[in-house]
Nucleic acid binder design. Structure first.
Lengths: 206, 206
DNA sequence: GTGACAACTTGTCACTGTCAAGACCACTCG
DNA sequence: CGAGTGGTCTTGACAGTGACAAGTTGTCAC
């Protein structure tokens, strides 16, 4: 690879190197030159494929949403009970924080990612579609009154909040002398409470 | 001010300039030299007060949690109904995203902020204490079975998720042809659904 | 073989954060 | 009042950064 002029698969090598750099050093210490070094090319080679830093990070964010789609789709494929599908989908969502920390750091960062990128928008909507589908199916299968859009927003906000707050909640747990939770248990407890709300929704479908 | 050697209130001038820079350009384009320029001092002057970039951003994050404590405390001070206190507290929390965008961008960024900073930890726990207090009071006043810790986690995750997802939810709303929501209405809908869950919790206090 | 284009390198520049040394200022104490 | 001390700031320097422009290499179609 180092004795050929053309890399052969540079876009993917750069994305992979970017994931490693962000995972190890955090997004705040990201460096395009370090990524290029790890991919074994000159520091301006990424410009051809991604334009600038924003282009590369936007590509990573898109990959993040695609991954989210994949893991949530896979999680619910093994379940038939609608309530359990909601829980395993939530667990898959929150598992991104530990399994794909680099993508997680990038996905909602409108300060470094182009929010108007077409591929990114499509990937985001698609991922949201899984969540909305699971929620809507639950409501339909149990003949519930809750608004699927509102319930989906609650679910999404909750799991996304858990992605951000994970370490903080563990700290609070330790500080207040409670037994440590696994992420899965925490997600299950919260989706159970959400399910309670959705099943007993007092709102009309106005 | 520019004709005296000593600035007189440099730490606050730097924090204020940092807020402006982050608000205008996003955290991803933060520059310590730009902050120093705006404060009218040399580019290394901030080092004496904050050490390095991490120190300044950590100070901002701490300020963010203190502000969160202030706005949530103020919001609930005008309410006596426990359920309404939860909603207005949620609205106050989410309003940080528009009223204090710079602080919001910094508060949970463990890649650029020192998560072990003592002042930051204290401020974070204190802000969480407001939320937990409101939830616990609600549960006690209505004689509910829900676990206050679990319910607090749900509330916190939800409002924090809304802070991150705000623009995305507006986009989805527009894409699916639904009428636009104000943030306050959205928060109210979600806290209503959470309240439904808390009031009908199927979990025991194990 | 030639021309066009994609993919990459090299050279350069302004800007960045940090380090170290120096300068300025305010206060205390003899 | 003057010296000493310590806090506060400036200056100078350096390695590293992203982006721009020009140049080089390689592949493919004709």
């Amino acid at each position: 690879m180092t004795d050929r002029y053309h890399h052969g698969d540079l876009p993917n090598a750069l994305r992979s190197a970017a994931v490693d750099v962000i995972t190890e050093q955090g997004l705040g210490h990201f460096s395009l030159r370090e990524v290029a070094r790890r991919a074994g090319v000159s520091h301006t080679a990424p410009a051809h494929h991604f334009g600038d830093v924003q282009g590369l990070l936007t590509s990573l964010a898109t990959q993040g949403f695609d991954t989210l789609y994949d893991v949530t789709t896979a999680a619910i494929a093994g379940e038939t009970d609608p309530a359990e599908r909601l829980t395993v989908m939530g667990q898959a969502y929150v598992s991104l924080a530990t399994e794909y920390p680099a993508h997680c750091q990038v996905m909602f960062r409108t300060d470094v990612v182009d929010p108007d990128d077409a591929d990114l928008s499509i990937a985001g909507m698609r991922a949201y579609g899984v969540l909305h589908g699971v929620v809507a199916e639950l409501i339909a299968s149990e003949g519930l009154d809750a608004d699927p859009d509102v319930a989906s927003e609650l679910c999404w906000a909750t799991v996304q909040g858990l992605v951000v707050l994970g370490p903080k909640l563990e700290l609070i747990e330790a500080r207040t002398g409670r037994p440590p939770s696994t992420t899965s248990d925490r997600v299950r407890r919260l989706t159970d409470l959400m399910l309670d709300g959705i099943r007993h929704s007092s709102a009309s479908d106005a």
